[in-house]
Design a protein around this nucleic acid. Structure first.
Lengths: 217, 217
DNA sequence: TGACTAAGATACGAGTCTGTATCTAAATGT
DNA sequence: ACATTTAGATACAGACTCGTATCTTAGTCA
């Protein structure tokens, strides 16, 4: 068994996959630091321990490399979200505020990552032909959050004031803006908490809420 | 009279100011389309009808040119906002929703302008030494909106659930995210309306607003 | 009117970037 | 064991880039 594993590890395809991952890692770093235009394939290749030849063999063009990084970024983002809620936590402990806070801190804690996210958005804005490819990923993420919201609201017996998908997209969109403000307005009050307060009013219909004991303060 | 005007118009300083404006106009366009790194001073100069020599005479460096464009952008943004609310409209007609909608459509109606805004943000993220210069402009805008909110809430006798400055910053931040979503999620439901609904609940304490005359303290 | 100054054009230097085309060495498979 | 494919390195070409240094022309002031 072990033999098989080792053999597989050094098979041609495995090796290719391996360097591909290294290239993507390096590309993510460099793109995040320098931006799409500012990053040079030379620097990316060197950071990965290869030369530009490897990049062209794997991705063909700078744009494709960038889009591959984007795809991977979104996938890991989504995976992190799934993981953060999937381990079934006791229902009582799952209050919106702490979850959102966790989300808030989970992703984009690194300014570079956040800058990279902005860079993706800019790229799509400037390359409309890629819009469709990326829009799907955005929608997938929103839908997943929407599903989660549905699940929770049913369980808690809350009534939403808007469709769960809309609420999910709204949360994501605002989250982007709030995160940006957090980085740009260093030293000023955090906006995330007041925003959550807003969200909560949107979810919990006022009359029933006060009688409910869902969170122990 | 005319002679004086004409004389002034062609004075050295006036002329300098004039070309400076043309350069800034062209720079805004090109930066918006290509981004900071992607834009070339050559293209900017040519678009303005000059050569690179003029740019270096006026701004010295690409960064300074970009920051000058940013400053101008923010100033005109703020001026547009002031103008949109200053002509004293009848109090009755001034409802939050229509105002916000106007705001929504006023700025960033052009994808390029919005992309340029993102580019500014990215630039500041990547050039922390410029953070302070720009943060002041952001705060000025937020404060101006906060003042407006105060004015209105006093007049309407509403009670805010958070400080007006926080509400202003929150609105601005979320607005950015929502605008981005509007450009990226073409074809999906607009998020601005549900967001406004949220905001309104933050301002108007309960859904039964019409019947209640809140006693503000 | 003539010297001076400054706006802006032209010329230059040095570096960088992407993409392609060729080359090498290793792994495959028959 | 040999021929073939393929991952990745190397070399090259063409085009751009920024920034500076010099030059020209026009407005200013005595």
């Amino acid at each position: 068994m072990q033999d098989v594993t080792v053999a597989e590890r050094w098979t041609q395809e495995r090796r290719r996959e391996h360097t591909r991952n290294l290239l993507l890692d390096a590309a993510k770093d460099v793109f995040a630091r320098r931006g799409f235009e500012g990053a040079s394939l030379e620097e990316i290749a060197e950071a990965a321990g290869y030369t530009r030849g490897a990049i062209y063999k794997h991705f063909g063009t700078k744009e494709e490399l960038f889009l591959a990084v984007n795809k991977r970024f979104n996938e890991s983002f989504l995976a992190a979200f799934v993981e953060s809620i999937d381990p079934e936590t006791p229902v009582e402990d799952l209050d919106l505020a702490s979850l959102a806070k966790q989300w808030h801190e989970m992703q984009y804690s690194d300014p570079h990552d956040f800058a990279l996210g902005l860079e993706f958005n800019l790229f799509v804005l400037r390359h409309p032909e890629t819009q469709e490819r990326v829009a799907k990923q955005r929608l997938d993420l929103a839908q997943m959050i929407a599903d989660f919201i549905d699940e929770q609201s049913v369980r808690l017996g809350e009534t939403l004031h808007m469709s769960s998908l809309t609420l999910a997209r709204l949360s994501l969109a605002c989250s982007d803006g709030l995160q940006l403000a957090a980085f740009l307005d260093r030293g000023q009050d955090d906006l995330y908490e007041p925003f959550l307060a807003l969200l909560v009013t949107a979810i919990e219909d006022s009359p029933t809420k006060k009688q409910r004991k869902k969170s122990a303060k």
